[in-house]
Amino acid sequence: MSLLGFLWWGSIVLGAAALAWMVWLITARLVRARRDARLGLDQARMRRLFLEIMDGHVEAARQLNGPSRRARLTAEAILDIAGLVRGHERERLTSALAGLGVEDRLRRRLRRGSRAGRIAAAEALAVFPNPANAAALRQALAVARDPEFRVAALNALLALDQAPPLWDLLADVSSRGLQDSLLYESVVRAMVARSPEQALTVFRDPAASVVMRTIVADALGRSGDYRAVPALMAAFPEADLELRIACIRALGVLAHPAAEPAVIAGLSDQAWEVRAASAEAAGRIGLVSAAPLLVQALADGVWWVRFRSGEALSALGEKGVASLRLAAGVDQDVVRRAASLALAERGVSA
């Protein structure tokens, strides 16, 4: 066949194939519509029974015997409830479901079937405090590669208080090159908030990589544990920029006055991110001693530093506001603007 003939007949064949595919899809849709309608009814019924069980009608669990065999359906219903309610009523529901063998089915579902179903099963297992569940999640975690599933399993383990050691998680995350994913970051934060001691040990460990320490520094800040202050201050002068930024931000979030030397040093750091974060930290801590440096920073070349410094000064009370008023009257245009706008944003007149 000539090339021209090939084009013509090829297009006819492909066109027919596309149309056939579409016909098949439409047929599948008709079948699916019926199945979805049934699924919708089952979902509604399951949620109703869940509410009844939570309300104390434990005998309603008997009616769940059939539908609860469908692991994904059950998992999604559990997750919807778990997103809304906690406390003893939820525990009543989970123990009734455990009595029906739901845990066992969810554990099996961790390894089988669609990805969405596996993730839902992992997430749902978080509400069943049973060592077997944690073991199954750990096993699944050891072989899973899909980051979304891994994060779901880690979160579930965390909820069950069975999280793997922080070190292992961090090493794993950095080795996979996934240190950037914010989803992992929130897992690390939750883990550090639960056991700041463990996080501090990792943070101080000389064998920990800079990436690991940076992630932990951020999480330590959010943990609200003041024991992290000395460690963060000790690490602050380090050469790595990311780590320095993470440390000073964390100190700012912790807002403990003991961070004063680091904040003062940070205000004249060569990296503007560190200067801006230091200014922010000074404001949060209420570091009046930083006021002169903050006034100087109002003339910084980078807008963010000027903005954060003005903001910090206005947060320093009488003395800060007085310095701002002074600065609002100077000749230098950038300084005047930074100062007067900082005052105006606080609702104070210059």
Partner: peptide, 27 residues
């Protein structure tokens, strides 16, 4: 042959692509 090939590239393949995109949405 030329005419048919031209019709193929300007009409029939067009149908393949349009229907294909719709099929993608549906699947």
């Amino acid at each position: 042959d030329y005419l048919l090939a031209f019709l193929a590239v300007s009409f029939t393949f067009g149908v393949v692509i349009s229907v294909g995109a719709l099929a993608l949405e549906e699947s």
